[in-house]
Lab assay of single mutants.
Amino acid sequence: MPEGSASLQLAVGDRVVYPNQGVCRVSAIDVKEVAGQKLTFVTMRREEDGAVVMVPEGKVLAIGVRKVASAE
């Protein structure tokens, strides 16, 4: 991610809310080559049905992904 860009610090195992998809758990953060460029992807699995969603790390905030609020 370019320096100075806002990002959401995620780790494998974090629970997040993905708008219009529901609650997901981060299952992987991997670098993949797409069209000759190396990009970091956040892979999330929906808790409702296990569907897998992959989002480029740089788009996580723009999409509206946020961490699940704690009970505290």
Rank of each mutant, 00 (worst) to 15 (best):
R46C: 14
K38W: 13
R46E: 01
L8D: 08
C24R: 00
P56E: 15
Q9C: 03
G36M: 02
G64L: 12
S5V: 12
N20I: 05
E47D: 05
T43E: 05
A35H: 13
Y18S: 04
V60F: 15
Q21M: 15
C24D: 00
T40K: 11
L10G: 01
P19M: 08
C24I: 01
K67W: 08
N20Y: 08
E3L: 10
Q37P: 01
V55S: 03
V52M: 10
V16N: 00
V12K: 02
S27F: 14
Q37R: 11
A69P: 11
R66L: 14
E47Q: 04
D49N: 06
M44D: 00
V53E: 03
V17E: 08
V52E: 12
A35Y: 09
A28E: 06
V60D: 04
V26M: 01
G64I: 10
V60P: 02
K32M: 14
P2R: 07
A62T: 07
K32S: 06
V52C: 03
E47H: 03
V17K: 04
G58P: 07
E47K: 02
V68P: 07
V65T: 05
T40V: 14
L10R: 00
V23W: 06
A6S: 12
T43S: 07
E72S: 12
Y18D: 03
F41G: 00
K32Q: 09
V31H: 06
K32C: 03
V60M: 15
M1V: 12
L61M: 09
D14M: 07
V26T: 01
S7A: 12
M1C: 03
V60N: 03
E3M: 11
E57G: 13
V34T: 05
E33C: 05
S5L: 11
R45T: 13
V52S: 14
V34R: 05
P56D: 09
V65A: 06
K38F: 13
V42F: 08
K32T: 07
R45Q: 09
S27E: 15
A69Y: 08
V52P: 04
R15F: 14
Q9V: 11
G64M: 12
A35I: 03
I29W: 02
R15T: 08
R15N: 03
G64A: 07
E33N: 08
D49A: 02
G22F: 04
V26I: 14
A69G: 13
A51R: 11
Q21T: 06
G4L: 10
R66N: 08
L8V: 09
K38Y: 12
S27C: 01
A71L: 10
P2I: 12
P56S: 10
P19S: 08
A69D: 12
S5I: 12
D30F: 15
D30M: 11
L39S: 05
V60W: 14
A69L: 09
E3C: 04
K59V: 14
R15Q: 06
A35R: 10
G4P: 12
M54Q: 09
K38A: 07
M44P: 00
E72Q: 10
V17H: 12
V17A: 06
G13I: 02
V12H: 01
T43A: 04
R66I: 15
R45N: 06
G4V: 13
P56L: 13
G4R: 07
A71Y: 09
G58V: 09
V12Y: 02
V17I: 14
V65P: 03
M54T: 13
P19R: 07
K67A: 07
L39A: 06
R15L: 15
R46M: 04
V34G: 02
G50R: 02
V60G: 05
R46K: 04
D49V: 02
A6G: 12
K38N: 07
E57F: 15
S7T: 13
E33F: 12
F41A: 00
S70Y: 10
K67D: 06
S27H: 08
V55G: 03
D30G: 11
S70P: 13
M1I: 12
A51H: 09
A62Q: 13
V31M: 07
G64C: 09
K32W: 14
A35Q: 10
V65D: 03
V26Q: 01
P56M: 09
F41P: 00
V23L: 13
K38D: 03
L10E: 01
Q21G: 15
Q9S: 10
A28W: 05
Y18E: 02
V12M: 02
D14T: 03
I29N: 00
M44R: 00
R66F: 11
V12R: 02
M44W: 02
G36Y: 03
V60S: 04
L10M: 04
A51V: 11
Q9T: 11
G4H: 11
D30H: 15
R45P: 00
A11S: 12
V12L: 06
V26K: 00
E72T: 11
C24Y: 15
S7K: 13
P2E: 12
Y18W: 12
Y18L: 13
G50L: 03
K59P: 06
R66W: 07
R25I: 14
P56Q: 10
V68I: 15
L61H: 13
I29R: 02
S7V: 12
P2N: 12
G50C: 02
E47I: 07
L39E: 08
L61C: 05
V68E: 07
P19C: 01
R45A: 06
S70G: 11
P19H: 06
K59Q: 14
V68M: 09
V31E: 08
E33H: 07
A62V: 09
Q37A: 08
A62Y: 06
Q9A: 10
E57S: 15
V34M: 06
V16R: 00
P19V: 05
C24N: 00
V26G: 00
T40N: 05
L61Q: 13
K32G: 04
S27L: 15
R66C: 09
G4E: 12
G36P: 00
R45M: 11
Q21V: 15
A6C: 04
D49C: 01
Q37E: 11
K38P: 06
G13Y: 01
R46G: 03
A6Q: 13
S7L: 12
V60I: 15
P2L: 11
M1H: 14
Q9H: 11
V55I: 13
V53Y: 15
D30E: 14
A51N: 06
V52I: 13
V31K: 05
V53N: 02
L8P: 07
I63G: 08
V53C: 05
M54F: 08
A11D: 05
Q21N: 11
V52R: 05
I63L: 15
E48T: 13
S70R: 09
R46N: 05
R15W: 15
L10H: 01
P19T: 04
V52L: 14
K38H: 07
V65M: 08
G13S: 01
M54H: 08
E57A: 14
T43N: 01
R46V: 03
A51M: 12
V31T: 10
S5D: 09
G22C: 03
L61W: 09
A51D: 05
L10A: 01
R15C: 00
V17T: 07
L39G: 05
A71P: 11
Y18V: 15
E57I: 15
K67Q: 07
A62M: 08
M44K: 00
N20C: 01
R46T: 02
L39M: 13
G58Q: 11
V55P: 01
M54W: 06
V52Q: 06
A51K: 11
T43H: 06
V31L: 06
L10T: 01
K67R: 08
A71R: 09
D14N: 02
R25C: 00
G4Y: 08
L39N: 04
R15H: 06
V31N: 04
G13F: 02
N20P: 11
V42Q: 00
V23S: 03
T40D: 00
L10F: 08
K59C: 15
A28R: 11
N20M: 09
G22M: 06
V42P: 00
